[in-house]
Design a protein around this nucleic acid. Structure first.
Lengths: 154, 154
DNA sequence: TGACAATAGGTGTTGCAACACCTATTATAG
DNA sequence: CTATAATAGGTGTTGCAACACCTATTGTCA
């Protein structure tokens, strides 16, 4: 029986390393998320809501249809409808049915939403800094590169 | 006004790098989590439940009290009670009140739970491999080191 | 044109997680 | 020994997310 079909000791070691790195990624992200969520809570926003607002701000005045919002999220969100509805209730977004194709509903960020994001920009940067600001520029660069490579599966 | 009180261009650039890395971490973790959750769902487990079972297996026959389980999780879980109760309902764990101090409830993994984990061990390793197995050993080592450094705040 | 596929959005239900609060048991101080 | 603090666990409620399914609108092809 060759090592192609069995699981060699070397391969086992490699697998454990892969698992360890996966767990490191999950742990680090969990810490970040917890910390950021805590900071956003003071402004009545969840991480998901904040990300949607960032996406809407990025989309500008032309807005986005709901599924496009879901597709651009960090984690694809199946239920963009009610997620956005909550932002609308809070006054941070608005929706309009597209008159050319009435299936589409364009969602835009409101002035209030923009104001809120503007107030949050610096605090958010400070939060990131407080979490990973002790890493050097080189380390940050390496980390970004490696993580991009990790997500870029062949 | 000195650069100590204002925000210099260089510092702004550094802050954006920090934010980018944070987002990379969150994105990568979200992808991993989504993929792992998908695989675990076939066995009726959530990521959180799987992690609890791993922790209980690691604790061995002496078991752990509920708050200790919560403390060892990737993300601290405030509601360990009902989380563990679900595992007990599924037959993967059991709880016993400690006779010496009746405030404590020791939770242990059952034979069924161990069997389930044993069945999952290889598939889980394969899942990790399919996600980040294209990275070299060196890259994995660097990633693990950098992530540990990231979480190790001064 | 008229049936039907395709696409975007909405809704009903369920389960889990977070928060706050409550109960039970033990330790401690007077 | 009793009152009180401290600790572990449990519970009630709320909100969000996931899944499946449904509706409305448009495109396509006989």
């Amino acid at each position: 029986m060759s090592d192609l079909s069995s699981t060699s000791a070397l391969d086992q070691r490699q697998k454990r390393l892969e698992e360890e790195v996966s767990l490191e990624i999950l742990r680090t992200a969990a810490g970040l998320e917890h910390f950021l969520a805590e900071g956003l809570k003071a402004h009545g926003l969840t991480m998901t809501q904040y990300n949607v607002l960032r996406i809407l701000r990025g989309a500008g005045s032309s807005g986005l249809c709901r599924n496009d919002v879901g597709a651009r999220m960090i984690a694809p969100v199946p239920d963009a409808t009610r997620l956005i509805d909550r932002l609308i209730s809070a006054g941070y977004a608005q929706k309009d049915t597209n008159p050319d194709d009435r299936r589409y509903t364009t969602t835009r960020i409101t002035k209030e939403g923009l104001n809120l994001l503007a107030r949050l920009d610096e605090p958010i940067l400070d939060m990131h800094r407080s979490q990973i600001g002790h890493l050097s520029s080189d380390e940050l660069d390496q980390l970004a590169t490696l993580l991009k490579a990790a997500r870029n599966q062949p």
